[in-house]
Amino acid sequence: MYTQMSDGIDGQPNASDERERAFERRLERGVKIEPPDWMPEPYRKTLVRQISQHAHSEIVGMLPEGNWITRAPSLQRKVILLAKVQDEAGHGLYLYSAAETLGTPRDDMIAALHAGKAKYSSIFNYATLTWADVGAIGWLVDGAAIINQIPLTRCSYGPYARGMVRICKEESFHQRQGFDIMWKLAHGTPAQHAMAQDALDRWWWPAVMMFGPPDAESTHNRQSLKWKIKIFTNDELRQKFIDQTVPQAERLGLKIPDEQLRWNERTQHYEFGPIDWEEFYRVIRGDGPCNKDRLQARIDAWEEGAWVREAAAAYARKQAERGAVA
């Protein structure tokens, strides 16, 4: 999964409402919210947006790696990648299923995606140019995603939390297979090693940006934290990612493209160079290398499949009528 923490909050809660206070007491006690329960409209809307955005990210996220299924360099790599991309489809579906419990039909969410109204993680607007990119995505992008996702298994909305438990469990192999690809390349021929370094160079900063804008700029952090839709802030998660990834890169013998990266003995954290937020917002606005291609691929699949969905629905109707007659 690839939730990107750039979420906004829709509207402001009206704290004068008695139901509102009961709802908040419930969150404070750590009791989960379940689909039919009363919830403030902004909470519902924020959740629908966050979960559907997360679901879209899974589905769009199938494309950059899916590119390489037919070109994976061994049969073992091929089945691993295929199973991983398949998981992403599954995880998208678990998440749409969770979002649908909030009363928004999946087709509406898909329509919003296709219309360009819904966001997905902008990491998938980068191109997968070589096989090493498949390794880098598993290692870095899934690595970042896991850090984002694990806290969400404790989020306040039951169906989302349960979905995340399942997703986290299933994704445990995703990061490892990516690291394993990088390991083989980094220890392979000079051409393979160069391929691995090139992929790290291109994916490092986009992966670091996956945690969303810095806390100072993220106006919505606070409300989501209060609602327990979010458990840690963007910067906390980003730091955790960098701290655990740098030693892995060292073991691989690859160099992270950040001249200012250094260990701070006092804080026990890595310090890192400035992030190019211009690029982040540019890609979100639609000017990444692949924004148009990714969305078009989704739209094509949907539109070219319309006659198939209609056929199955028509057949089901006929069968139901036949059953009613017989």
């Binding site: 589905i59 199938m62 899916g66 299924i69 091929k78 398949q86 489809a89 998208g92 319309a306 198939v308």
Partner: peptide
């Protein structure tokens, strides 16, 4: 394998 991510509905992927 080349069809995955391009199905008429995601369940089919």
């Amino acid at each position: 394998s080349g069809l995955v991510a391009h199905s008429p509905i995601m369940e089919e992927d």
